[in-house]
Design a protein around this nucleic acid. Sequence first.
DNA 1: TTAATAAGTGAGCAAGTGTTCACATATTAA
DNA 2: TTAATATGTGAACACTTGCTCACTTATTAA
Lengths: 103, 103
Amino acid sequence: MSKVLKNDHTEETLFEVAEFFKVLGDPTRIKIVSALFENGELCVNDIVNLVDVTRTAVSHQLRILKDKRIISYRKEGQMKFYHLDDAHVEVIVLLTITHLSHH
Amino acid sequence: MSKVLKNDHTEETLFEVAEFFKVLGDPTRIKIVSALFENGELCVNDIVNLVDVTRTAVSHQLRILKDKRIISYRKEGQMKFYHLDDAHVEVIVLLTITHLSHH
DNA sequence: TTAATAAGTGAGCAAGTGTTCACATATTAA
DNA sequence: TTAATATGTGAACACTTGCTCACTTATTAA
């Protein structure tokens, strides 16, 4: 008599969850995301200063975050102000920080 | 007059957050984690059947999850029963699934 | 128009990752 | 002891990833 195994979440759902975590699973990108929810909105130059990597590297990571719909921007003159696309991301990251602090 | 930029979370904290997300950011590992919180406890063979990758691949990923303190096991005879090490992980994953379902 | 500022792109490359293959260990049954 | 079952390990390899370098685009100022 073998127990029936539960398998409620679809392959596709779990793949999307993995994709989401993978995007947040990089030091540069999580620093950018953290800087954005702490400051609300930042131009690329401010992000570069806070995150301490090169302009080019920041640009590449901003593109990835934008493609995955985690951030968006508002254009003002020649500057772009980036912000989080969805408040849930902040909740998930803060919950994780709390979880890890009880390590 | 430039605004002061907030930078409250330490480099180290954010690095650990990235590490945590990186571990969950793989399809095989997130499937294992999901299978474990759905079923409470599973032996390797059951995990292999639920997750649909080879025994060897599952073993390697179980080791990574164990090293990162996301899972533990209980030994019974020649079998090992794996389970989540901390309920917070389930909360974070479920919250993420909810977040993505409102995509 | 020309120069300066803000931001982005694409190729190249070193480093990292997940799987497979062959082999190893541990426990139980014959 | 021998065989069978359950699980783990390490090297090899293809694939992915994040950075840097050189160059480009867009906007504003001179």
